[in-house]
Simulated scan of single mutants.
Amino acid sequence: MNHRPSTVLIVGATGSIGRHAVAEAQRQGYAVRALVRDRARAARLLPEGVDLVIGDLTRPDTLGPAVEGVDAIVFTHGSTTSERDVRDNDYAGVANVLRALGGRRARIALMTAIGTTRPGVAYAQWKLRSERLVRASANPYTIVRPGWFDYHQPGQRKIVMLQGDRRQSGSPADGVIARDQIARVLIESLHIDAADRKTFELVADHGPAQDDLTTVFESLTPDSVGSLDAAEDTVDLPVTHEPETFRHDLAAILVGIPRAAE
């Protein structure tokens, strides 16, 4: 990573994780831009000093002003467990923002979910496809798969990063994490070199939070350059068998790679 980003776009800024991400980014000294659909609502929910830019993740033609001039993008948006909602919002939002970049480089932090690689789970497969687009984009990135929100106990603050996505019960037994800790990890990944090209499940263990997450990131295996999938995942989704929507988006992003390297 060549430099610490200075201007960060938060996607999903008014959501329950996004609001924490905005506050954390401000605390760490970033200039924060928020992609919002309703300026008045966002102004009520977000702190002063945030640059509110109107746009809609589902409408690519509205995203140009949001990505103009930013050098980092944090995706905190998320919908339901409906396949249609995840496809049309979670996945499409990532695809549309990456394409709006037009090949310009930006540091990416993407939040998906623990259990993203569960076989046969249709909505999870669309989250996985959004991860694949980020890996294919040639941008520096970190992909964070949080455990279950709001099931943690007060003393459960030690941040734990796992790989391989092996916890697949679909319940809080897979791991829990506080919302503010998810935001902290997303924002800190932007400036820690060891976080680049890392994909991991994020949960909390009993004990205090670490002051510095560098060594935690350093313990992780980086994703292989050129691979669409995470380093320790087991995934059986051949691109040739993937939906046309994904293959079209992937091709469009791959075309942008030479411009990203300029």
Score class of each variant (00 low, 15 high):
K158E: 15
G207M: 14
I177R: 01
A21P: 10
D85A: 12
L45Y: 05
H241T: 11
R259C: 06
Q156R: 15
E68D: 15
I187M: 14
K158R: 15
A72D: 04
D90F: 10
G175W: 00
A92H: 06
G93V: 11
Q156V: 12
T14K: 06
A95M: 10
S137E: 02
G69T: 02
T234Q: 13
D38T: 05
V176C: 01
E262D: 09
V53G: 05
S169R: 14
A106E: 13
E244L: 09
M111N: 03
E24G: 07
S6Y: 01
E218I: 01
H20P: 08
Q168Y: 00
T80Q: 12
V94N: 02
Y151F: 12
D61W: 13
V36P: 08
R259G: 05
D38F: 03
A100N: 04
R184V: 04
Y151D: 11
D85Y: 05
V239M: 09
D85I: 05
S79C: 01
P154Y: 06
D223I: 01
I192F: 04
L101G: 09
S224P: 03
W148R: 06
Q181S: 11
G78P: 08
A40N: 11
G69C: 03
P140L: 02
A42E: 04
L9K: 10
R145W: 02
G64A: 15
A230T: 00
N2R: 09
P119I: 06
A92F: 01
F217R: 10
R87L: 09
Y123V: 03
P146A: 11
A72F: 07
F217V: 04
D236R: 13
G49N: 11
P47C: 06
L35M: 13
I177P: 01
Q125Y: 12
L237M: 10
D88A: 04
T117V: 07
T81F: 15
A40Y: 05
A136C: 10
G69A: 04
V225L: 09
A261G: 06
H241M: 10
I159F: 08
H20D: 11
P258D: 07
G207L: 13
F200I: 12
R19L: 14
A178W: 04
L213D: 08
L228C: 05
L9H: 09
V176E: 02
V50N: 06
V203W: 00
D150P: 03
L237F: 10
G102D: 12
V97E: 01
L190M: 11
H77A: 13
A173K: 14
S189N: 06
G155K: 04
A109R: 13
Q153E: 14
I257Y: 03
V203R: 00
S130M: 04
G164H: 04
S82N: 09
L57T: 08
I177A: 03
D165F: 00
V225Q: 12
A136R: 12
P238H: 06
E188Q: 15
L237R: 09
G175Y: 00
L254S: 09
